[in-house]
């Protein structure tokens, strides 16, 4: 899974120190890009690549600028994470300075909140209803 970020150093800090993810791979790929992947502690097989929006082969200057603006604006939702107890995890992430777009609300499938990463990508954080 690939998440486009505005700054890899800041993203590294956010995903590791705020979300508590582990660094899987961190290899320089030229002067201002690294192949940086992180994994959620409970799901080590899910590698999330934190990719910078740099001008180059993938993005020309104009596209890179537009992409960066869209990410910053919060256009892209990247994934759904689940947790055991949403209220506790919500309080924990808030205490660590994570910004929430939406506080926990009751949904038909359980409870859900939306948080943003340091770039502006949003994620759902859900506590799914017990199947019993």
């Amino acid at each position: 899974m690939c998440v486009y970020v505005l700054n890899q150093d800041s993203a590294h800090d956010f995903y590791v120190n705020k979300l508590g993810f582990n660094v899987h791979t961190n290899v320089p790929m030229g002067p201002d890009t690294r192949w940086l992947t992180v994994t959620p502690p409970e799901q080590p097989a899910l590698e999330i690549t934190l990719f910078p929006i740099n001008e180059g082969n993938m993005f020309d200057a104009e596209t890179a600028k537009i992409m960066a603006e869209l990410v910053k604006k919060g256009t892209f939702g990247a994934a759904v994470f689940t947790c055991n107890d949403l209220m506790v995890t919500y309080e924990e992430l808030k205490a660590k300075g994570v910004e929430f777009k939406k506080p926990p609300t009751k949904e038909f499938y359980g409870y859900e909140a939306l948080f943003k990463d340091d770039s502006g990508n949003w994620f759902s954080l859900s506590q799914l209803k017990s199947e019993q």
Binding site: T25, V27, M29, M58
Partner: peptide, 25 residues
């Protein structure tokens, strides 16, 4: 091994899309 050849850390689709295969990385 990654230090000697950073491309070994990256899936091929990304190395092609980002042009790293053709560069001197």
């Amino acid at each position: 091994s990654f230090t000697a050849n950073p491309l070994h850390a990256v899936p091929n689709c990304f190395t092609e899309m980002y042009g790293w295969k053709k560069s001197n990385i």
